[in-house]
């Protein structure tokens, strides 16, 4: 497993919460294509969570995630009243959990992370980008997903970081060091985009000097951000005028932690996305826990 393209795995436990006092304990597992998260909630408050790369086997990753989430507490899976599962590998989760579709989980998780004023939740997952438009009482009004192929999603950024040998946590901030964004790479299809990005390092034909490293990262991430704008924009566009976002915007999923993409989307939409105390990758798991049972 390469070390550049993976978000650092994390485990967290609420220091002050005593789970035994909780009337209802629920858990949620989001077995995604690229990463797996497990979250445990006591009476609707986040008790503990764990996030790790999915690797080859969904079954093993889901079990590992739940074990890490419960590590150090004397809680066992049997103490959990109800469990929800979601994500690409949801069918492989080995616990007696209720399957819930991803859009509902990310909508519910998004409202948990960003509060009730969020109206547009954009999940930047490993293989799909989901733009969800919500009403105040977490009623899903409209959904749009990337048309088909996984172009410009987590998986492609993961491969890019391995190729360019730069940690996935640094590529975003480094790409923001440029004054103005250069011309984006011509495609986000990650097979071609990666080779084109490598090519940008070479001696340019029609330019005085080659692009700086930051400019190359910016060129790639700008193309990915622009592709995601297409999905967000399809949520009920206006007849005339630029893209408009409905209400407050919240990013979830792995790429939400990549400022190189989120800042560029915010700049084009002329809005600032809501921030959350917790890791945005947890939205799916938290949503599954809240909706479970």
């Amino acid at each position: 497993m390469s070390k550049y393209g993976i978000w650092p795995e994390c485990v967290w436990r609420s220091p002050e919460m005593n789970w035994r006092a909780a009337r209802r304990i629920t858990a949620g597992i989001d077995a995604g294509t690229t990463s797996t998260q497990a979250a445990v909630l006591c009476d609707g408050a986040l008790f503990s969570y764990a996030s790790l790369a999915t690797g080859v086997d969904f079954n093993r990753s889901a079990t590992l995630a739940m074990e890490r989430a419960l590590e150090g507490t004397d809680m066992t899976v049997a103490d959990i009243h109800a469990m929800g599962r979601t994500g690409w590998g949801s069918a492989n989760v080995p616990f007696p959990a209720q399957h819930i579709d991803e859009v509902q989980c990310h909508a519910k998780g998004g409202r948990f992370l960003f509060g009730p004023e969020v109206h547009t939740v954009v999940d930047l997952g490993g293989q799909t980008c989901k733009a969800i438009r919500l009403f105040d009482w977490d009623r899903v009004r409209d959904i749009m997903m990337n048309d088909k192929c996984a172009t410009g999603m987590g998986r492609s950024i993961e491969r890019l970081c391995e190729l360019l040998e730069i940690p996935i946590t640094e590529i975003g901030p480094r790409s923001l060091e440029v004054q103005t964004d250069p011309e984006p790479v011509s495609t986000t299809c990650f097979a071609f985009a990666n080779t084109e990005t490598m090519g940008l390092f070479g001696r340019p034909e029609f330019r005085a000097e080659p692009l700086s490293e930051a400019e190359v990262y910016a060129s790639h991430l700008f193309a990915v951000a622009w592709r995601i704008l297409g999905t967000i924009g399809k949520l009920q566009p206006l007849d005339v005028g630029d893209i408009q976002v409905y209400g407050a915007l919240g990013f979830t999923g792995g790429l939400a932690k990549n400022p190189g993409i989120t800042r560029r989307i915010e700049r084009e939409l002329k809005v600032t996305a809501l921030e959350s105390r917790y890791d945005p990758m947890l939205a799916g798991a938290i949503g599954a826990a809240l909706l479970a049972g």
Binding site: S186, F192, E196, G199, L200, P204
Partner: peptide, 17 residues
Amino acid sequence: EGSQPGDRTDLDEKRFL
């Protein structure tokens, strides 16, 4: 390969040269 004469996506200029 490229997108279309009026659309620069999918045309990797470096590779074309």
